[in-house]
Structures are given as structure tokens and as C-alpha cells.
Design a binder for these strands. Structure first.
Lengths: 202, 202, 202, 202
DNA sequence: AATGAATGAGAGTTCATTCAT
DNA sequence: AATGAATGAACTCTCATTCAT
């Protein structure tokens, strides 16, 4: 028992090692520079070894994507405890950007890169990726019910807010270096305040 | 004199030919499908010839980037004739997204892709890419002066609006397929209306 | 004693299991599709286990070859009961081709493929493969004694008949698809009749 | 003119060099051991270079096959000058086997190996490979007309003769080493005599 | 007795690039 | 000015095999 448990643990560690290094490579060198050989070099195993843990390159990629979406969802959940719908919505936006900026690699993978979703074909995967958007819509609904937002097409409102935070996130990730570091947090926070504030009617 | 002039002109024509076909290729097939051989095939010269006009592949891409920024700037300029600052600002946003959605590969090159900006190091290039942002700030300034927008940190306002339209643009380009086609234009237009409207105070 | 006997028996069973599945694989998918991993999958053991029973892949193939020769010999024996030498010889030829056509992969292994015989170097293996040829010569000898065939160099006669049936067999196996299916059996039967008939003098 | 001619000649020489070495490899190491890299090693060029002259591996293979069929056809044609139909048919058979034995590599490629014909899809290629068989049938027809052979289904007669010589050829090529060298020619010649003689009625 | 883990060698192919002409 | 010829490096992936346990 102890043995098989240890083996399983070791296997999981190896899988994580591969995923970690693959992710780092994604970050550092971009998608098309992640090769099986480079991953192998990083983990200090032979390329063949990787195939013991993953069917092929797309499986690694697919797994990375799932992990990213999970982490992302969790980050969004962390503000759901807030009672006041308006405050919650604002916190939601800030949490979104914060996650993106703190995990630019994950964010890049999920929302910026080429077409990772090409690998996602089973409906389960789709759920993973829309879960967070549903959360946002629920928040907006609550705000409408509480009179914070005017009666508006929820799809439009959700899309607007998503666009805004996604815009902030991608700019920060891809062009952040163009903005003085000291200025970045200020911009993020105030932009969200400014943009959202206008939408609230009380 | 006449001779060297003609030679220079011919040289420029060749450069343009290469850039044109490279761009078409890039637009039609995306970044990773632009290979030196394919460009050569299109211009009906040998791959080697390209190297007589460009140091290497990145130089071509660098040039393409400049062209993209120019086109982008022009697109933005096309609404500058509008007199009313508020209307102009709205039109600005819509033009921005329209350009991005109609020229997804330009937009991708300019604002989404990883590598290309790595090539931009000389200050001249920077100007090219911030020109449009300056235009936006000028528009906002006008709006403030006309009492359409409250007195706000222009950097915050500009960043907010840019984030919003950039967000819309990238979502449409990268994840547009997740949104029913008939719905896309509706979303774009109404999202801009909804988001910007909140910012105006009159 | 009982223990070591059982162990030996179990060992033999394992060997047979491996050979059986390897043969099935070979028959179903052909030589180059027999991989150690596929054999392992079939026997539901790990690839490594196979190496406890066979030195390497060629040893398995060598064994398979012997089995094929045995089966082949048996098929030939099945007509030896026929009394009349002439009829027996004809039946022999037909049985030969029938076996080949019904077991194309065996036949391929024994008489067409390149490598396998490279492994056969010990005289024992040679016997296995010439046994059938000896049978043919005996049949011819009988025919001569019975006045069916003229007095001829038995080596020449045997070689001639073998060539003929081997020729039919290999054509059918390797190029059979070029011949309309309905036509194949007709060709085989009539060709043997036609070719052999000429050799008989009564 | 002289230049382009020389270039063309050099190109052709390179193509021939590649085909020659590829053919030798086929002979020496068998089909599955012919790799692009090995060919490259032999011709002392890089693997990439081969792709300048051939689209891919199958194109090399296809070319080899055509060359073989051409040579083969020529060899058969060399006896067509013989006037007497019977003598011609005998000579035909002997020429067939002689070609096969003298060019075992070609013969292997055409009639023994796996499925080279898989590459042949255009009708032209098929003609190349059946041309020789048509020649045989014409010879048989002549023999019938001249009363040398009884009125028989030409398909059966042709198939019988082809089987016989093909059988001899393949045995000699694949199992020739089992027959004492001094004995081989004797066997070939006498077997053809013995087998064909029976078929003639005058 | 059995195996999970690991690997070196090698497969076909494509790419940007250089060099001699 | 233009190019044909050539290449090294790299790609993903599969195979038979070994070794420690």
C-alpha cells in the first residue's frame, strides 16, 4: 500500500514537474518555442520520458489550460463572500486583473494565446472556461436586483465589464513594460473605479 | 544620376513587393505560416533574393509592424473630422474596434503577439506606436474642456477607454468564435455605448 | 520436484502465450506492426516481462518461423494418405498453394521476407525448413517408379514444381490484388493442372 | 546555354547518384532500412539536400520502381527478335530469370517487396508494370497459332509460365544461398526446359 | 516473477540562412 | 542583381531495450 502510494505520488510529482517547466517555457519563450526537447532539458530527463506521462504535446497543453482555468476560477471565488452586490462586483473586477497580472503566464494561456481552445472539444472543458463568466453574470444580476445597475441586457453588461478588465489585463501583460512600474497599480485601480463607477446608478 | 535614382527606385519597388506579399501571407495565414520560401514563391523570386533587401526575417516583421501602426493611425484619423468632442470620442472607440476586427492580423501583430515588439528598440519606432494613444488623449482633453467628462486624470481616462476597446478587440479576435456571429456586432456597438455613456456627465 | 516441474510448466505456458499473441499480431497486422509493446498489451503483461522469456525480438521471430514451418509441414502431410502417386502429387501442389494463400503471413515469413532466415544458422533449423521439400522429392520418386513421370533428375523436377507453386503463392500473396478476386481460385487450380499435366507421361 | 545545360546535367547526375545509392541500400539492407539519413550518408550530402531533388521518400521509391520496370521490359524485349515462336517463348523464360538473378535488387523491388505498388496510382505507372506481361501473352498467342501449344485459356497459360519463372526467380534471390552455387545455373536452365517442354505439343 | 521508469537511437521532414557563382 | 545548391539545427514522435526494485 505504502509502496503504491509512494509510486503514485512520485508519478504525480513528475507530472507536475513537467507541467511546471512547460509552463515556464510558455511564459519565457512563447508558445511556438515550447518543444518537447526543451521541456526535457529543463526537467533533466530525456524527451522520451515525457511521453510516459503525456500522450503528446497537445495533452500537456490541454492540461496546462485546465490548471489555469481552475486557478482562475478560484481567484474569482475568493470575493464571493462579499455581501453588498456593488462592492462585490468591483472587487470582482479588481480580483480579475490582479490574478491576470500576478499570473501572466496563466492568463496568456487562457485568453491571449493563439488557439489553445482548439484542443478543447469535450463539453466538460467548455464548462471549465465559462464557469467564471457565469459568475460575473450572476453578480451583475444581483446588482440589477439591488438597484445598483439600470435594467440592461446582462450580456451587454457582462461583455462590457469583461472587455474592460480583459483589456487592462492584456495591456498590462503584453505592454506593461511601456508603463512606469510605479504607475501601473495606480492605473489599474483607478481605471476600474472610473469605468465601473459610471455604470452604477446608485 | 538618373541611373542611381532609377536603381534606388527599383530597389524600393522590390522592398515594397516583398513587404506586400509578406503582409498578405501574414494576413491570410497568420504569423507562423509566413516562411521565407512562401514569400519567395509569391514574389516569384528565389528565397535568397529576399536577403538582398532584408537582413533577416525579423527585419521584415519589424517593417510590417510599422506599416500596421500606420494603417491603424490612419483609421483613427478618419474620425477626427467630427466636430463634437463627445461624438468624436464615441466614434473613435467604434473605429478602433472596427479596425481591429476587420484587420485581426494587423491588430494581433501590433497588440497581441509576443515577439514583434522585441524588435522595436529605437525611439522612432516607439513614436509610431504611441501616436494613436496621443490622439485619444487629445480627444479626452477636448471632452473635458467641453464639459462632457468630469475633470479626471487624463491618463486614467485614456487607459480606461483603451482597455475597454482593446478588451473588446482581443476578445473578438481571439475568442470571437465562442460568440454567435449574429450577436457580435450587437455586442460591440452596445458595449461601447454602455461603457462610454457612463463616463459622460452631459 | 513437483515445484520445479510446475514452474517449468508455467514458464512454458507463458512462452506459448507470448508466441500465440505475437503470431496473431503478425498475422493480423504484418511484420513491421509487431512491436514489443503491442505484444505486451495483448498478453496483458509489461513489455519488460517478455524479456524474461525471450532474449530479444529476433528470438521471438525465430520461434515463430519454426512454428510456421511445422504448420506448413502438417498441411503437406495431410495429403500423404492418398495412394495414387500422381493424384497425390497434384494434391500436394494444390495443398501447398492453398496453405500459402490461406496463411499469407506464415508463407511470407517462411519464404518471402528477408530478415528472418538470417537468424537460422544452426542445422536444426535447416532440417525444419527442408523437411517439406524432402516430402516433395519422395512423391516425385514414387511417380517415377510408377511410370507417371519420365526418368528425370529429381532435383530438377522438384525444383520445377516447387518453383511453380511458390510462384503462384507469391504472386497471389503479393500481387493478388491485381487479379479480380473471382478469378483467383480459377487461375490457381487451372494453372496447377496445366503445368503438372504436361509433366506426366501417363 | 552551355551553363544551363551543364547545370541540368549536374542536376541529373545528382538525381542518379541519389537513386543509385538508395537502390544499393534497398539491396543491402532491405526496404525498412532505407532511411533518408542513410542515403544522405552514402552520397555524402546532408539529408536536407535530398529534398531538393525529391519531394519525399516515396518519390524516390516510385522512381526506383519505374527504373526497374523499364530495365525489366528492355531485358524482355531483347529476345523478341527470335522468329520461331517456341524458341522465343523459351528464351523469354530464360531471359526473365536471368534478369531477375542478375538484378536481384530490381526484381525484389518489383515483385517481392511489401507493397511498392501502393505508390503507383496513375494509370501510366500501371502500364509500365503490365507491359511485360502483355508481351508474354502475345508470345503465347503466337505459339498457339503456330500449333506449338494446345488451344488453352491464355490467361491460364500466361499465369502458369509467369508463376514458374517468378518462382524460380524468387527462390534464387531469397533462398539461393541454400543451393550450391555451381548447381544454380543448371537448375534454372533445366527447370525451364523441363517445365515448358511439357506444355508444348509439337 | 514482474514491472515502472527511463533512455539512446533514430525515423521523416521543415526552416532560416549562407555561399559560390 | 539574382540564384541554385547546400546545410545545420530543429521539430514531434516511436522503437527495442535496460536497470533498479
Amino acid at each position: 500500500m505504502g509502496i503504491s502510494e509512494r509510486k503514485e505520488r512520485e508519478r504525480q510529482e513528475m507530472i507536475n514537474l513537467i507541467l511546471d517547466e512547460a509552463m515556464k517555457l510558455f511564459i519565457e519563450e512563447g508558445y511556438e518555442n515550447v518543444t518537447m526537447r526543451k521541456i526535457a532539458d529543463r526537467i533533466e530527463y530525456s524527451p522520451t520520458t515525457i511521453y510516459l506521462y503525456f500522450k503528446d504535446k497537445t495533452e500537456i497543453f490541454s492540461e496546462l489550460l485546465n490548471i489555469a482555468f481552475d486557478k482562475f476560477y478560484e481567484a474569482q471565488m475568493s470575493v464571493q463572500y462579499i455581501e453588498d452586490a456593488k462592492e462585490k462586483l468591483l472587487a470582482h473586477g479588481i480580483a480579475y486583473v490582479k490574478f491576470a497580472v500576478s499570473n501572466p503566464n496563466y492568463y496568456d494561456l487562457m485568453f491571449i494565446m493563439k488557439d489553445p481552445t482548439a484542443n478543447m472539444k469535450c463539453p466538460d472543458d467548455w464548462k471549465t472556461s465559462t464557469r467564471t463568466y457565469d459568475l460575473l453574470k450572476k453578480n451583475i444580476q444581483e446588482c440589477i436586483e439591488n438597484g445598483y445597475l439600470e435594467e440592461v441586457d446582462i450580456e451587454v453588461a457582462a461583455f462590457t465589464m469583461w472587455s474592460h478588465v480583459h483589456g487592462i489585463a492584456s495591456i498590462m501583460i503584453k505592454r506593461g513594460f511601456m508603463i512606469p512600474e510605479a504607475f501601473r497599480e495606480y492605473l489599474i485601480y483607478n481605471s476600474i473605479q472610473y469605468g465601473f463607477k459610471g455604470l452604477f446608478i446608485k
